[in-house]
């Protein structure tokens, strides 16, 4: 579904991604783990078109998207739910969701709202509330709901569990699994490697802009290297 080959991305003078290659297959949950500054968010921003690689290729559904605009990439069904939630705090929950469906036909809007409210009943309770007044967990649900409104074929999630209480973290991961079971492929960036490896099919480990390890999520979770470095055993 997604094939990234040998991309090099620069932030000004900083060489943020070095000859990086990954792939995601239809129906999978693939997780990217790694320390702060390893380049995980940079990779997601490059996939959604916010950053452009200097060299390398990115193919999504057998089409090159390297030179596409962010808007065109969203239209293709590659949707990026950014780090830090980034909800529109000055707008209501409902308006935020509506913006998620910005490129969708308005005829499917009612059904899409229904779908998101079924997944996140809390959002229905708060639909008229300003997004800025929601709790951190609710804002995360809103950010994910907003991304789902755009009919993602591939959903990029950047640190969805960041700053949430442990119980909420459980909920969020459960929902990611549900969304995936309903047919959406997921590329998940996480600091919480333990949880991420539990729900993922495969994983890539990033260090200073390079893939240093890749493989089956269960096997990686059991490997000593990962346990030492990321799981704290």
């Amino acid at each position: 579904m997604l094939t990234v080959q040998g991309i090099n991305v620069y932030y000004g003078a900083i060489h943020a991604l070095k000859d990086l290659s990954i792939n995601v297959k239809q129906g999978e949950i693939v997780t990217l783990i790694g320390a702060n500054g390893a380049g995980k968010s940079t990779l997601l921003k490059t996939l959604s078109g916010l950053l452009k690689p200097k060299t390398g290729s990115i193919e999504f559904l057998d089409k090159s998207i390297v030179n596409q605009s962010v808007q065109a990439i969203v239209k293709e069904g590659l949707i990026h739910c950014p780090e830090g939630r980034r909800v529109f705090a000055n707008m209501s929950v409902e308006e935020n969701l509506e913006l998620g469906a910005y490129l969708q036909d308005s005829s499917s809007l009612a059904a899409d709202f229904q779908r998101v409210y079924n997944t996140f009943p809390r959002l229905l309770e708060r639909k008229k509330q300003q997004a800025g007044t929601l709790s951190g967990g609710e804002q995360q649900m809103l950010a994910m709901g907003r991304a789902i409104m755009g009919h993602p074929k591939l959903l990029l999630l950047d640190e969805p569990s960041m700053g949430l209480a442990p119980l909420l973290v459980q909920d969020i991961f459960k929902i990611i699994k549900e969304v995936n079971d309903a047919g959406t492929t997921v590329l998940l960036v996480e600091q919480n490697a333990h949880q991420a490896l539990k729900i993922a099919d495969r994983a890539y480990v990033l260090e200073t802009g390079r893939v240093v390890l890749e493989g089956d999520a269960k096997e990686l979770a059991d490997s000593d290297e990962i346990k030492m470095a990321y799981l704290g055993h």
Binding site: V74, P82, M91, L99, G150
Partner: peptide, 21 residues
């Protein structure tokens, strides 16, 4: 829709772009 896009862009340009605005 345009008005909502205007409010979204003025609040957070990058997030607005990720909506396809």
């Amino acid at each position: 829709k345009t008005g909502k896009a205007m409010r979204a862009v003025s609040f957070d340009v990058e997030a607005a772009r990720l909506m396809g605005i």
